[in-house]
Amino acid sequence: MTVRELERTAAIARGLVVEMVSKGGSGHLGGALSAIDVITALHFHVLRERPEEPDWPYRDRFVLSAGHKGMALYAVLALRGYFPLDVLQSYGSARTVLPGHPNMHSLPGVEANTGALGHGLALAAGMAIGARVHSNQARVFTLLGDGELAEGSNWEAFAAAAHHRLENLTAIIDCNGLQISGPTAGIMSMEPIPQKLRAFGWQVTEIDGNDMAQVIGALGDTRAGEGRPHAIVARTVKGKGISFAEGAVAYHYWKPQEGELDRARSEISARIRQLEEAGA
Rank of each mutant, 00 (worst) to 15 (best):
A11N: 00
E19D: 15
G24Q: 03
H28W: 10
A32N: 08
I39D: 10
L42H: 10
V46H: 12
P54W: 08
D60F: 13
A66S: 12
G67W: 06
L73M: 08
L73F: 06
A75T: 03
Y82I: 00
D86M: 11
V97I: 14
G100N: 09
P102I: 07
P108D: 07
A131I: 00
A131V: 01
Q137E: 14
G147D: 02
G152C: 01
G152E: 03
E156R: 00
A160S: 12
A161C: 02
L166K: 12
T170A: 09
G177N: 05
Q179D: 04
P183M: 11
A185P: 06
M188A: 14
S189Y: 08
I193C: 08
I193N: 07
P194S: 10
Q195K: 15
K196N: 10
L197C: 13
I207N: 05
G209Y: 04
A213C: 05
A213D: 14
P229E: 04
A231T: 03
A234H: 10
K238M: 15
F244T: 04
A248T: 04
A250H: 13
Y251I: 13
W254E: 13
K255F: 13
E260G: 10
D262F: 11
D262Q: 15
R265C: 03
I268L: 14
L275H: 06
E277P: 01
E277A: 15
A280C: 01
A280V: 00
